[in-house]
Simulated assay, not measured.
Amino acid sequence: MNSYAALLRGIMPSNPNMRNEKLRGVFEGLGFDRVATLLSSGNVVFRCADSDEAELEDRIQEALNRELGIAGGTIVRGHEDLRALIDRDPFAGRTHERGTYLTVTFFKDRHPEVATPEAADELTEIIGYDAEARAFLTVIDNSTPRTPDFMAWLDKTYGKDITTRTWLTIQKVVKKLEA
């Protein structure tokens, strides 16, 4: 059995169709094993015999749309890939804390044409693009209620086929996959 994390875009726990128990139900209905949700922001871990992540993304997204009306994006990453990202320690020496968020923006595309802006806004430090994880790594100044321009740039440049998680969330997902 392979272990995966599905990172769902646009999940709002206030929407009754987006609650964890309903999300788990969709994944269980697809025949996946050891389905569990993490936090209330669209992180679902599961096991299955399938090994094609793109096919899993499509199957999951179709089921979410059909059964719960969730049209957002689904990005799947295997346990080994997420574990390898953590082991590379891309944020070495930095701490995720109240005013400084370490973030990972995952791309659905298998071979994205990645453009890095000349300079991020004053609220964002770009650590870089991790090709193995297909993810941008950034440090966000979260001490202000303003949304960083970089996040808007990501959405404008790459559309809905991306999703962002904090580094702490990625660590929690991997821990859940290893439980």
Rank of each mutant, 00 (worst) to 15 (best):
N15Y: 11
G99Q: 10
R34N: 10
M18R: 08
R9I: 11
P13S: 07
G42N: 04
L38M: 14
D89P: 07
G73C: 01
R94M: 11
G69S: 01
R88W: 10
N43Y: 09
Q61K: 05
K108Q: 15
L38E: 14
I86D: 13
P90S: 11
K22A: 04
C48I: 05
L82I: 05
G31C: 08
A36I: 09
N17V: 01
N65S: 06
N43L: 12
I75K: 00
G93V: 10
L8S: 03
P16Q: 06
S40P: 10
N20C: 09
D52A: 12
L85P: 07
G31D: 15
D58G: 03
G72L: 01
D58L: 07
T100C: 06
D33F: 05
M12C: 05
D87S: 13
R9S: 10
S51W: 02
D58W: 07
G10W: 07
E80M: 05
P90H: 03
M12I: 10
R77T: 02
F91H: 08
G10F: 14
D50W: 07
G72C: 02
G42F: 06
G73P: 02
N15D: 13
V76L: 05
G78Q: 00
V44H: 06
P90F: 15
E97W: 12
N65P: 01
T74R: 01
L7T: 02
V104E: 00
H79S: 09
A63C: 13
N17M: 11
E55H: 08
A92S: 13
L68K: 11
F32N: 12
R47W: 00
I75V: 03
R88P: 05
R24F: 01
